[in-house]
Simulated assay, not measured.
Amino acid sequence: MRERIDSPANKKVKLAASLHSRKHREKEGLFIAEGIRLGEMAAAAGWDIVFGLYTTELGEQARGRQLLAQLEAQGCLLCETTAAVYRKASATDTPQGILLVMRQQKSRLQELPAAGKQPLYVVLDGVQDPGNAGTIIRTADAVGADGVILLKGSVDVFGDKTVRSTMGSLFHLPVCTDVTAEELMDFAAAQDLTLYATALDESAQPHFAQDFTRGTAIVFGNEGNGVSEAILQRAAKTYIPMYGRAESLNVGVSAAVVLYEAVRQRQSQYLPQ
Score class of each variant (00 low, 15 high):
140 A>G: 10
75 G>A: 09
21 S>E: 15
195 L>Q: 03
97 G>Y: 00
53 L>E: 01
133 A>K: 02
29 G>Y: 03
86 Y>D: 02
231 I>V: 14
142 A>H: 05
269 Q>V: 13
173 L>R: 09
114 A>S: 14
272 P>A: 08
81 T>C: 11
100 L>W: 03
248 S>K: 05
41 M>S: 06
38 L>F: 01
140 A>R: 00
74 Q>W: 01
198 T>A: 14
126 G>D: 03
185 M>T: 10
95 P>K: 08
214 R>F: 00
242 M>L: 14
204 A>V: 03
228 S>L: 03
210 Q>N: 11
41 M>K: 15
87 R>H: 12
177 T>V: 14
105 Q>D: 12
208 F>T: 06
83 A>S: 11
255 A>I: 02
21 S>L: 12
151 L>F: 02
225 N>A: 12
128 Q>R: 13
22 R>P: 10
79 C>H: 01
37 R>W: 04
86 Y>E: 02
26 E>G: 02
10 N>K: 05
66 Q>L: 11
105 Q>P: 07
70 Q>D: 14
15 L>G: 07
180 T>E: 03
42 A>T: 07
261 E>S: 04
126 G>S: 06
85 V>E: 09
251 V>G: 00
161 K>P: 05
33 A>T: 01
74 Q>K: 14
154 S>W: 01
105 Q>K: 15
61 Q>K: 15
63 R>V: 13
140 A>C: 12
28 E>D: 12
217 A>S: 06
78 L>V: 04
29 G>F: 01
86 Y>Q: 01
270 Y>W: 12
62 A>M: 09
108 R>K: 14
31 F>G: 00
145 A>T: 00
268 S>E: 13
114 A>G: 12
270 Y>Q: 12
4 R>N: 11
120 L>A: 02
258 V>R: 01
6 D>L: 14
173 L>H: 04
110 Q>C: 15
266 R>S: 06
62 A>Q: 11
265 Q>E: 10
70 Q>Y: 05
110 Q>I: 13
94 T>Q: 13
70 Q>M: 11
208 F>D: 11
167 M>A: 15
62 A>N: 08
38 L>N: 05
162 T>D: 06
1 M>L: 12
125 D>T: 05
216 T>M: 00
17 A>F: 05
192 D>A: 14
3 E>V: 07
240 I>C: 03
71 L>V: 00
164 R>Q: 11
39 G>K: 00
206 P>E: 03
